[in-house]
Amino acid sequence: MTDALRRPRLPDPDQILSGRQWEWQVLADPPTVPRMRRELVAYARSLGASDATCDAIALAVSEALTNAVRHAYVGQEPGPIIVEARLEGHNQLLLRVSDEGRGPTRQAESPGLGLGLDVMARTADDFSISNRQDARGTVVTLRFSLSDHDPISQEPAAPRNVDGTLRDS
């Protein structure tokens, strides 16, 4: 196991604001859940996310990571979890949690999974879970509006209206 798998490092927020997509590979073991949750919440906060938005992100990210740790690599050695963060538009934070495991499981086969999925659906502005298109495994996509504080534009009116429309659609 490499040190890189053990120690996710967040990019500089200024670099993310430049539009690049960032990606970390972490090991699908339990300590990854609180560690990445805190890192991503700290990042969202640095972008100006409100307390309520940070709570929603903490909860949804915790569920996505917990699902991957618990269900992706059942009966085998823990594999990687890939976490991506991307700022889209002015204030949409896109988070993607992927693994290389057995793919989405039916709820009946994994008691307890249902509540986590429900929590993600409730907390994120947009949520999806599916088979990865590019590889074996599951991908969870979560989108959050950071519209309480626009991290780029200091002009509140126009971008917020546009983003509000997108969020409600």
Partner: peptide, 9 residues
């Protein structure tokens, strides 16, 4: 300070 669905369960 934090609780998710695992804690709720």
């Amino acid at each position: 300070s934090f609780i998710d669905s695992t804690g709720i369960a």
